[in-house]
Write a protein that binds this DNA or RNA. Sequence first.
DNA 1: ATTAGCAATCGAAAACAAAGAGTGCTAAAA
DNA 2: TTTTAGCACTCTTTGTTTTCGATTGCTAAT
Lengths: 336, 336
Amino acid sequence: MLDDRKKKVLQAIVEEYVNTAEPVSSNSIVNNYGLNYSSATIRNEMANLEKTGYLEKTHTSSGRIPSEKGYRYYVDELLKDDNISLEEIKYISEKLETKVNEIEDLTKIATTTISEITHYTTLAIGPSTQGLLIEEIKFVLLGPRMLMAIILTNTGMVKETIIKFDEDVSDKQVETINYMFNQKLKGQPLEVIDLPLEEYLINEMKYSVKVIRPIIEQIKRVVKQDRQLYLEGTNKLFDLPEFNSLEVAKNFVNIIDEKELMTDILNSGFAKDINVYIGDETEKQELKDFSIITFKHKVGDKDLGTIGIIGPKRMDYSKVISVMKYINKKLKDKGT
Amino acid sequence: MLDDRKKKVLQAIVEEYVNTAEPVSSNSIVNNYGLNYSSATIRNEMANLEKTGYLEKTHTSSGRIPSEKGYRYYVDELLKDDNISLEEIKYISEKLETKVNEIEDLTKIATTTISEITHYTTLAIGPSTQGLLIEEIKFVLLGPRMLMAIILTNTGMVKETIIKFDEDVSDKQVETINYMFNQKLKGQPLEVIDLPLEEYLINEMKYSVKVIRPIIEQIKRVVKQDRQLYLEGTNKLFDLPEFNSLEVAKNFVNIIDEKELMTDILNSGFAKDINVYIGDETEKQELKDFSIITFKHKVGDKDLGTIGIIGPKRMDYSKVISVMKYINKKLKDKGT
DNA sequence: ATTAGCAATCGAAAACAAAGAGTGCTAAAA
DNA sequence: TTTTAGCACTCTTTGTTTTCGATTGCTAAT
C-alpha cells in the first residue's frame, strides 16, 4: 500500500506527464503541485516509487514517467471521474439533443462528440446479436426470383437480406415459406438458424432444396455478419508529440487497419461499465504503446453497441472516463 | 513536342525515380538505361527538360525529379499499359473467380487484389443512384408504427428503409399508400422524390401529414444517402520513403480521414475508362503530394461503383494502370 | 525525517569538418 | 553542329567534438 505522500507524488507525476509528455522532475512537482517538501524529499519518494515499480526512468539522469503499474494504480485509485467542465457538459448535452431518425445515428453523434472533446481517435461497433430472439420473419417477393427476408427481433432490431433463386418462386410458395419459417422460428434465439433447421425444413416442406437452402444461407449470413466498425478522428493522434516517432505513427496506422483486432477489443470486457486497457494489458503486442477505453452504451435499455477511444498510454484517463460516464448516463436517460 | 531522345530521358528519369525515390543523376541514366551518350549530353538534355518544365531539381547540385508536367506527359505519351506479369494475371484471375453471393463482394475482392498487387491504398465506393429509375416501391408493415419501404430500380438495385410513426397505421392505409406511391413514382427517376411530390401526395390522399411526411423523408434520405466508402491498406504507404517525412504521413492520414473529399474524387471523372489525377491536378491543396487513379467497374453492364488507389506522386503509374485495365476487362467479361 | 549542496550523468543542440554526389560550363573532339 | 572530357563549384549528408543544462543520487548537516 502506498502512503499518502507517495500517492500524491504518483498522481502529480501522472498528471504532469499526461500534460507535458516530458519526463517529470522532482522540481516541477514541488513548484506546480504544492507539495510542501523539498525537491530532495520528492526525489527520495520517486526513487522509492521506482523501486516498487510505479515509475520508470528514460535514462539515468532524467525525470520519471509512470510505468504501466503506475497508470493502473492511478486509474484504479487516484483518478477523479468528474473532470468535465460546464462548457463540455453543455456541448455534450446539445449534441445528444439532436433529433435523429435512426437510433443508430445517436451512436455516431456520441462517437464524434467524444472524439471532439478528448482529441483521441474513437471507435464504435454496433450491438451484438448475441442472445436476441426472433420475433418474426417476413418475406417479400421482389421479383420472380428475388425474395427479401426481414427479421424482427425482440429488441426491435431489424435485419434484412435479399435472396436470389435459380428458379421462379410463386406467391403461394412464399406464403408457405413464411408460415413454416415463422412456425419454427418465432421466439427462438437467432443462433438457432443452422444446419439441423435446414434439414428439418427441407424435409418438412415439399419445396426443393434449391429454394430453401439459399434462404437459410442468406439468413445465416446476415445474422452472423461482422458488425461495421466506425472510426472517427484517425488523424487526431498525429498531433501528439509521441507521434513524432515514425515507429509509433506507423504502428498506429497498422493497428487501425486491423479491423479484427479492434473489433475483438470492443467486444471484450463485459464486467464493468467502463473498461480501461493500458498498454500491454491487452496482451496484443501491437498495442503496447497505446491505451484503450471502452464502454457499452444503451438508450433506455436498448443495447446500442460499444464505443471506445484509443490514444497513447499517456492518456488523459480522467478526462476520457469523465466524458464517457457523462455520455453514458445521458444516453441511458434518453430512453425514458 | 519532345524529340525522341528527350522522351527517352524523361521516361528513364520517371521510371528510375519511381523505383528509387531518389533524384536521378545523369550518370545513373547512362548506366542503367542504355542510352548511348555521355553523361554530359544527358545533362544537357536534362537542363533543357527542366527549362521546359518537365523536370525539377531539389537543390542546385542534385539530380532531377519529374515535375507534375513530366508525370503527366509520361502517363499520356510514354507509359506502357501492359506492365503486368503472368503471375499477376494468374493471381488476379483466381481471385476474381471466387464464388460470391453478393455481387458487391466482387468489389471488395477487386479492391483487395489491387491493393495487394500495387501496394498502394485502395478506395472503393458503391454505384451512384444518379439516373436510376424506380421500378417499384413495396411497403411492408413491420409493426403498428413501423413500416419498411423497399425501392426497386430498373438496374436491379434494391434500397430499403424503415419508417417509424407517432400513430398507428393500418393495413388498409398501407395498401393505399402503396397504390398511390407506385401510381405516382413507377418509371420515374429516383430524384423525382422531393418537395412537390410531398405536397401532391398530402393533398391527394386524405392521410395526415404525420404519415406521409416521414415516409417521404426517409425515402429521400436513403436515396441520397452517402454511399459507404471502403478503404483498404491504409498502412501500405507507410513503407514508402516519402513517409519518413512526418508532414507527408500526417497529411495522408488527414486525407484518409476526410471521407467527403475521397468520395468527391471517386465520383468525378466520367470521361475516361481510367482517370489519373497527379498531385495538384485535383485542385485540392491536401492532395498535392499524392496521385489518385480511379476507374468505374461493371459486371456485364451492371454498374458496381468506382475503385481508386491513392499513392505518392512518384507512383508506379504503369503498373497500376495495367492492373486496373486487366481487372476492368475481367469483370466486364464476367457478366456475360 | 528532512533538506541543502554538490559531483556525476546523460541528452540535446550547436559548431565544425570532411566526404561525396552531382551539376554547369568551357574548351576540345568528332 | 553535336558530343564529350574535364574540372570547379555547390550543396547535402554524415560524423565528430564541444558545450550547455537539466536532473539525479548521495552525503553531511539540520
